[in-house]
């Protein structure tokens, strides 16, 4: 045991205590991820924790804790219960809106203290590279000819992927068979293995299969193209199909209800420093995430608009809690 301590300490140099702002964390910060280990939100939380460690941005360590039960309900309700706590933060994805709307748990983002929006994740329509569909138009025509026979794979049920599928169906008069899987990586592999016909995966989940020539991106679900290197040749859905179907996913950070003002200031400054590191920027570029740092009023406004949007989209798709 002693040996292990020594060894661990060799590798894991503990962070020094810098002098700084008026308020600073006085104990380890619990960073709640309302999803399982290994997903997009989990990755970003651990990246932030790692960057903080590497650049000594926080006097105390950031401890990532996964509470993914009930499509994130476990994590949200846990943070909601920590009123006034200055040492807990939570990273959210679209389940910030979808989980309360679909399951009816007593939670709203208004219960939390908004800190910062770090990025927005894109969605792309993918098909298997062996299929003859070179453009979104060709694929959609094929789906239209044979309704309820093409399978669309996605993550979970009544979450972003299904919302997007329903949006696409309603805008273009299509009918897919939606097959829910546990995680984005699994979805893309089922596409490579030809078990589903198309997916709406995030760019990073399918990127390497694309480079290996196994899948083909047809269109980006956004109002403009992804401005990063190899991604910029993919047309938007509007360009490819004429229908304006767009959706992006939040990667934002919140604190518990009524978090002290000084703590909020510290976290906002901290997250900005993390955002500006070359490591974080590289992560955004590699994953074709949309750089979208925003705080306070701008962030709140965005979240409000998107809550309304999710309500409308889910009502249209019949996904609201009955």
């Amino acid at each position: 045991m002693k040996l292990a301590t020594a060894l661990a300490l060799c590798l894991v140099a503990s962070s020094a205590v810098p002098a700084g702002a008026a308020w600073e964390p006085t104990k380890p910060i619990e960073f709640v991820v309302p999803a399982g280990t290994g997903g997009g939100a989990d990755q970003m939380a651990r990246l932030i924790s790692g960057i903080a460690e590497k650049h000594k941005l926080s006097p105390r360590p950031i401890i990532v804790v996964n509470k993914g039960g009930g499509a994130g309900a476990e994590g949200f309700l846990d943070v909601k219960g920590k009123k006034g706590d200055a040492h807990t933060i939570i990273i959210t994805l679209s389940n910030l809106f979808t989980t309360p709307l679909h399951t009816g748990i007593p939670f709203s983002w208004r219960d939390l203290t908004p800190l910062a929006r770090m990025a927005l994740d894109q969605f792309i329509l993918w098909v298997n590279a062996e299929t003859p569909y070179k453009t979104a138009k060709e694929y959609v025509t094929a789906v239209k000819d044979k309704p309820t026979s093409f399978k669309m794979g996605g993550t979970g049920s009544a979450q972003e992927d299904q919302i997007l599928t329903i949006q696409l169906e309603q805008a273009l008069g299509l009918k897919f068979i939606y097959v829910p899987f546990k995680g984005g990586g699994e979805v893309c592999v089922n596409l490579v293995g030809n078990h589903v016909d198309s997916t709406v995966n995030n760019p990073i989940e399918c990127a390497s299969h694309w480079k290996a020539g196994r899948v083909r991106p047809l269109a980006v679900f956004d109002t403009q193209r992804i401005p990063v290197a190899e991604w910029k040749d993919i047309p938007t859905v509007k360009e490819a199909l004429g229908a304006d179907v767009h959706y992006v996913m939040l990667r934002g950070i919140f604190g518990p209800p009524s978090m002290p003002k000084e703590a909020v200031d510290w976290y906002v400054a901290f997250l900005k420093k993390v955002y500006d590191t070359p490591e974080f920027q590289k992560y955004l570029t590699d994953g074709a995430l949309k750089p979208a740092f925003a705080t306070s009023a701008e962030y709140v406004k965005w979240v409000e608009e998107n809550e309304q949007l999710h309500k409308e989209l889910m009502a249209k798709g019949g996904l609201l809690k009955k």
Partner: peptide, 9 residues
């Protein structure tokens, strides 16, 4: 991914 490698084929 965090180390800047692209997993996959």
């Amino acid at each position: 991914i965090i180390w800047g490698l692209q997993p996959g084929p």
